[in-house]
């Protein structure tokens, strides 16, 4: 059991892989999920740019994405992953299902945040002669920013848990590590060590996200 000197660097590598997957997936998720959330919000009945059909279709897509268990999604999007990355194994390949799984999740959170912005603020801005895109840019997003940051934090934490699950099918990172060493070689200590690492990462992210959101809300 005195192989920790061999295992520790590998554990560190696995942590790095997890952060890489989650980091890139978070960036892509924000890039896609925020506009999707904005569209969901403004096309709703009585909102800034009501469009029942678009709203209905987007809502359906988002609900589908959200109701699918991530492990099923992993398998389902494998062909897409292979098309984009060329393989379905490893951390880079895992970014694709992670992003696809997290975009609908974030989009709903964004929608909820934007809906919280008082309609009066939107009206006051329209009354100034603003275009609708100006309302999104200068009112909806800035006014909802603290809540959006909180939503992204929740999404990152969910991505970490998804990424650990992706380890089950060779996705790399801490989940992969825990399964290969901890589970398959009956090394409970290794499993525990990865769990502790995951916990620390999640705690740190949550703390940083909360702090940021709070600073935005009070500044």
């Amino acid at each position: 059991m005195n192989d920790w000197s061999r295992i520790a660097p590998q554990l560190l590598d696995a942590t790095g892989e997890t952060l890489y997957m989650v980091g890139v997936a978070t960036a892509l998720t924000v890039l896609l999920g925020v506009p999707l959330g904005v569209l969901l919000t403004i096309t709703a009945p009585g909102a800034l740019a009501p469009h029942p059909l678009v709203n209905r279709v987007l809502g359906l897509v988002v609900n589908l994405g959200r109701s699918l268990p991530f492990i099923i999604l992993l398998v389902l999007v494998a062909p897409v992953t292979r098309g984009i990355v060329g393989t379905t194994i490893g951390s880079t390949a895992t970014i694709v299902p992670l992003t696809i799984g997290a975009v609908p999740f974030l989009a709903r959170l964004v929608e909820t945040s934007l809906r919280e912005v008082a309609h009066g603020k939107v009206e006051a801005t329209l009354a100034m002669g603003a275009r609708r895109r100006d309302v999104v840019r200068t009112v909806l997003l800035p006014e909802a920013l603290p809540s959006l940051v909180a939503g992204v934090t929740v999404t990152v934490v969910a991505l970490i848990s998804y990424s650990a699950m992706a380890g089950a099918i060779g996705g790399g990172g801490l989940g992969d590590f825990a399964i290969r060493y901890g589970y398959q070689q009956f090394r409970t200590d290794i499993t525990l060590a990865t769990v502790v690492l995951l916990l620390v990462v999640v705690q740190l992210l949550q703390w940083a996200g909360d702090r940021w959101a709070r600073r935005l809300a009070t500044s």
């Binding site: 008082a118 009066g120 006051a124 800035p142």
Partner: peptide, 20 residues
């Protein structure tokens, strides 16, 4: 939109932006 620039409006609940 152009015409609205020459019509100011104020409201019961002010509708100021908290982010500014």
């Amino acid at each position: 939109r152009e015409a609205r620039r020459s019509i100011g409006m104020i409201f019961q609940h002010f509708n100021l932006l908290d982010s500014r």
